[in-house]
Design a protein around this nucleic acid. Structure first.
Length: 431
RNA sequence: GCGACUGUAGCUCAGUUGGCAGAGCACCUGGUUGUGGUCCAGGAAGUCGGGGGUUCGAGUCCCCUCAGUCGCCCCA
């Protein structure tokens, strides 16, 4: 009895075109991170469950996939985020690391929640962290690589905005507005939910906390565009100046309605949003100076950001920055067409081309109709077609440049080296 | 955990008050000898998500179930 299996809820099968898009995203993340001087790390896909409950409390357990080995009692959990692993890794290796540590990773993450738009149970997430630098220079490095990635994807400061905030600034603004200190958590929670609540309900809840509508204007995007450096947060003021000096002013706006739910953020917090406003945050991050210490290391300042592939892809599609998935598949350098009755020459030719480092393919169809085979080469978007036909008797093959629609005869002896040189001379034309 | 909506060909979908399951795209073959996005002709292709019920008869109506999507909760 056969049984039709389906992928588990909230997971994805990556068939070749989707896998090619995923590799495109990952390659942008990776190459920009490296250009900015970050080094790639990874950790285990699952950790001890306590690694997450220590940081987020027991309530987190219902949000993640946890399990134990059959017969064992140790509890594990598939990683729902990378920051605890990073904190653990830094804490245990801090003595042989020379700060600032600049690491990035591209791990898969898991969460047990119900899937919805922009939110699945398994996704790929780019993480970047600067550990060991308490100055605004650390935030600047993280935001610079973040903007570098956005730009490389073709996004502009008109497509996306980084909403910058600072928890101490938010705290001071709330207290300054007359909020009772005991009500700070409730106020943070309310600010976090502003976009989800009807305006009237938001105002009503704010009023019960003792906050009037006028006071709340400062918590809107762009509200209070500059913080007095000598006032609320010198650190935040310096960060804004550094961003402006680096020429990145157009990429951010202050938004003190951004507080981020994570308890471990200690200062700067930020989110990247599409200006369309229709999607969840593309990326989020901030400063978490207490995390390494929490995992047994010395007090160590840190700043990080994370960007998931799901929302990113939605935004790239919405803004027209992603072409059809098929165009991300690797293009063959050479498509060998065999018009001869035997396959020996074809197989030797393909082998030589591959040995020369070229991406070489041939048809698996039985037809000898040249038109059909050229059509197949065209569909695969091959650069060159090599036709093995009657010229082979004189030791030559027809080489056709498929884009230029030009062809010439080349001796079989020099075929591999000639094509290798031509393909490598061409710039990468992946989209 | 709660709610709404949607499941028909590989893809996007149509299918009237229940009456023989369709279109476009894609695919395959041909339009006689070795030249690729066009054109013409033909062809293949579906347990109508699954199960049960009502009926002479169900893609269509009713119940259950599975899956997906979008919200709520939660959010790393």
């Amino acid at each position: 009895m056969t049984h039709a299996f389906q992928a588990p809820k909230g997971t994805r099968d990556f068939y070749p075109p989707d896998m090619a898009v995923r590799r495109h995203l990952e390659s942008v993340w990776r190459s920009v991170s490296i250009n900015h001087g970050f080094e790639e790390v990874d950790g285990p896909t699952f950790e001890h469950l306590e690694l997450y409950t220590v940081k987020s409390g027991p309530g987190i357990v219902s949000e993640l996939f946890s399990f134990r080995r059959a017969g064992g009692k140790t509890e594990y959990a598939l990683r729902p985020e990378f920051t605890p692993t990073l904190g653990r890794m830094v804490a245990s290796a801090i003595k042989r690391l020379s700060p600032p540590v600049k690491w990035f990773s591209i791990p898969t993450m898991f969460r047990a929640e119900r899937p919805q738009r922009g939110r699945l149970r398994e996704h790929v997430q780019w993480n970047v962290d600067v550990v060991g630098d308490a100055s605004p220079a650390a935030e600047l490095e993280v935001l610079a690589v973040l903007i570098g990635v956005l730009r490389r994807f073709g996004l502009t400061d008109r497509d996306v905005t980084i909403k910058l905030s600072h928890r101490q600034v938010v705290t001071e603004l709330l207290l300054g507005a007359g909020l009772d200190e005991a009500r700070l958590p409730a106020a943070f929670d309310l600010l976090d939910r502003r976009d989800k609540l009807p305006a009237a309900e938001f105002d009503e809840r704010a009023a019960t906390l003792g906050l009037d509508a006028g006071t709340l204007e400062v918590f809107r995007p762009g509200g209070q565009s500059r913080i007095d450096p000598a006032g609320v947060s010198e650190h935040f003021g310096q960060l804004l100046s550094a961003l402006d000096d680096a020429g990145l002013a157009s990429w951010y706006t202050t938004d003190f309605g951004i507080v981020r739910g994570l308890a471990y953020y200690t200062g700067t917090v930020f989110e990247v949003h599409a200006t369309s406003g229709r999607e969840r945050a593309i990326a989020g991050g901030g400063r978490y100076d207490g995390l390494v210490e929490l995992f047994g290391g010395p007090p160590t300042p840190a700043v990080g950001v994370a960007m998931g592939d799901v929302v990113l892809r939605l935004v790239l599609e919405e803004t027209g920055r992603l072409s059809t998935p098929e165009t991300y598949l690797p293009r063959p350098d050479v498509f060998v067409i065999n018009l001869l009755e035997t396959t020996g020459l074809r197989d030797r030719t393909v082998a030589e081309l591959r040995d020369a480092g070229l991406h070489a393919r041939h048809s698996h169809r039985a037809t000898k109709k040249l038109g059909k085979l050229l059509s197949e080469a065209d569909q695969l978007r091959a650069r060159f077609a090599v036709i093995l036909g009657r010229e082979a008797e004189e030791g030559r093959a027809v080489v056709k440049d498929l884009a230029a629609a030009k062809e010439e005869e080349i001796t079989l002896d020099t075929l591999a080296t000639t094509l290798r040189d031509r393909c490598h001379a061409k710039p990468e034309d992946q989209p």
